[in-house]
């Protein structure tokens, strides 16, 4: 039995850069013990699936420092440093910093009013000046602030990620990464940072420095979604207070 545990651990580490915790794996194998004759590859697949839905703090090992974030990662006095190797992290928060908070609130309200349903959309802004056909070709530049429609966000996005040891870090989508978007990347989704750069305490995400593994933590994602509008509004209120 120990042998198959080792094999699964090895496979997840080599294919997904996930150092699985021995205790978690032991538990997992025990829980699947009643299923006999399951091939090892299928078992590894199930393990991966469970890990992606788990909290990394439970499922990953913290024994190898190279797969953890430096504990002082937030340090803003460090202009630039490189994170060596692969570090698995999970997403705790995501926001679109290319779009104002208020227009995100408005977008949520449109969905609440049922205007995201097909046939129930309302056109709210039209450009009186432009020839509708020519404007497709675009005058470029200043008009780029088009309203984000529900579901898809413009980005760039700002994430809060967490490693197996619970260390948190802010990450900025410096270059567009497919799959990072509101509504596409749930809370608890798993990423692997690869030789990522950290500048002034922020992890810089680029297609080269991040691999999306998928998954989510259902309970967190649910609460996050339910509280999103309230959090946005609270932040706006806070900002107004400061002005």
């Amino acid at each position: 039995m120990a042998n198959s545990e080792e094999q699964i651990a090895l496979q997840l580490l080599s294919t997904k850069s996930l150092p699985v915790s021995a205790a978690w794996l032991n538990n997992f194998v025990a829980s699947t013990a009643h299923q006999r004759n399951v091939p090892l590859s299928a078992l590894a697949q199930t393990a991966l699936f469970r890990i992606l839905a788990s909290d990394f703090r439970d499922s990953l090992s913290t024994r190898t420092p190279s797969s953890l974030l430096p504990v002082d990662i937030f340090d803003p006095t460090v202009q630039e440093r490189q994170l060596q190797g692969s570090i698995p992290v999970q997403v705790l928060d995501i926001e679109d910093i290319g779009t104002g908070l208020w227009s995100q609130v408005e977008a949520i309200e449109r969905v609440e009013r049922g205007e995201a349903i097909r046939g129930r959309e309302i056109v709210r802004t039209i450009n009186v000046d432009e020839d509708p056909e020519q404007s497709a070709e675009g005058t470029g530049g200043n008009t780029a602030s088009a309203q984000p429609e529900t579901g898809n966000s413009n980005g760039p996005h700002r994430l809060v990620v967490q490693d197996a040891a619970g260390t948190k870090a802010v990450a900025i989508e410096l270059k567009r990464v497919n799959g990072i978007a509101l509504g596409k990347l749930p809370i608890g989704a798993k990423l692997v940072l690869r030789n990522a750069t950290v500048a002034r305490g922020m992890v810089l995400l680029t297609p080269e420095s991040v691999t999306l593994l998928g998954g989510k933590i259902d309970s967190l994602d649910q609460t996050w979604k339910e509280g999103r509008k309230e959090r946005l509004v609270a932040r706006i209120t806070e900002m107004q207070g400061q002005q």
Binding site: Q79, I97, G98, T99, G100, L101, N142, A144, S145, P156, R158, I172, L174, A199, R200, M202, L204
Partner: peptide, 17 residues
């Protein structure tokens, strides 16, 4: 190209780079 962003820290880092 990004026109503007709503996070000052991020913009500061981008400018520094």
């Amino acid at each position: 190209r990004r026109v503007h962003l709503f996070d000052r820290a991020a913009v500061t880092v981008m400018l520094e780079r």
